[in-house]
Write a protein that binds this DNA or RNA. Sequence first.
DNA 1: TAAAAAAAATGAACATTGTTCAATAAAAAT
DNA 2: ATTTTTATTGAACAATGTTCATTTTTTTTA
Lengths: 231, 231
Amino acid sequence: MAKNIKSLQRREREREELREQILSAAMNILVSEGYEAVTIRRLANEIEYTPGALYSYFKDKDEIVFALVVRAAQHLNKVFQAQESLPNPLERLWAIGRAYLKFAMEHQEYYDLLFIMSTPIQKISEAEFSEGYTAFIILRQTVGECMEHGYLPRADADVAAFALWSFVHGSVSLMIRKRLAIIPEEKYQDLLHGAYNFLMSSMMPRHHEQPDATLPKPFPKLKDLQKSKKK
Amino acid sequence: MAKNIKSLQRREREREELREQILSAAMNILVSEGYEAVTIRRLANEIEYTPGALYSYFKDKDEIVFALVVRAAQHLNKVFQAQESLPNPLERLWAIGRAYLKFAMEHQEYYDLLFIMSTPIQKISEAEFSEGYTAFIILRQTVGECMEHGYLPRADADVAAFALWSFVHGSVSLMIRKRLAIIPEEKYQDLLHGAYNFLMSSMMPRHHEQPDATLPKPFPKLKDLQKSKKK
DNA sequence: TAAAAAAAATGAACATTGTTCAATAAAAAT
DNA sequence: ATTTTTATTGAACAATGTTCATTTTTTTTA
């Protein structure tokens, strides 16, 4: 009658470990082979279980993918939070933008999952997904401060933050989803970089000169997220 | 020996008609039920043939989808070309942007296909896809003229056009792919509209006041492109 | 420690996808 | 009319996510 609480705790812990194993395998496959390769059978194989077993750890595939989205969001949030120490809001705004571009281009698979893919996002509105807002809130805060300092025209901070986010998101998502066939791929680095400086400078004063060292050059080769289906 | 050229022409024509039927059905289903519903068997059913028959009209599904992309591009091009009559480049630039937003929000399925989805885009780099560039070329031309008139800072026209494109693309794709859960959907209209005016005005002088009548209000309800799989 | 209960994992199925291909039907050429 | 060419079918295949009765393993109880 008195359940052995020790073994129950251990079971709980082991379940958590296996969940972690599944997600970890999913992350690895996502990064190394692209989203298409992240399949239930593949994951089951990876953790040496049978496909059906996964369904006692996750309700369905969407739940797995959503967990990956959360991780990607946490990753981005760290990047954003690392910029918060910069005291000058204009400088911080520029830095946030650069960090965003860097994150997107260096972790295209995460970025795609987080901001482009359709799959697991229905849930986001329902589920608790505070991780998804953090970055935006930091951006909005910074934009607001920029307005106070006269670096940006006064306007609704939501609107202005959305505008800037739209710009950087548009840039990287056009690249990731390969809508720039007009432009040779060698120019992507310059294009992204140039557009960022052009638009940002046009909108607001340039902060004190800063080397673009935080932008990796050259960007990692754009991996084909939609890998060959045929073997 | 002398093949009946009459009947050959007719056969050719009939094949073309069936091809057209397939694509037309695909467009209808795409718009009314979303991309997920555009399936080989569904299309076969629609034209009252067997699934396998489609493969004598199209190499594979990607070829069908690519044909839809081309149509979507032609649609957008018409919208862009309609703006070319505006003599003042600044005014034209604003109009092009507004037309782009309108197109995207009123034809989200086409837009998604054209600029967001992964599926059929590998081919674009290879295939002849002049339709895909037309709109960008018009934009770049206008941006160039704006620079000449001093409406925009002088810079590489490719870079500047890409920057502006990125912005509007980012806006609509964040909406279409539902990454704005922070913001209530009723505000989308104001958000899009406000961000456009904010960013454009910050970058360049506002052209003579123009009612925003070309932006539909309210925007059509965002349809769930990733419809319910389960019935 | 042995039996009973609970939990976990399997394995085989199902319904969908896109796609192929030998066999058949239809149409055109001889 | 026969032959040849073309078009269409229908059945299969592989791969996807998912379910569920059965079996195995683990835990609890006696």
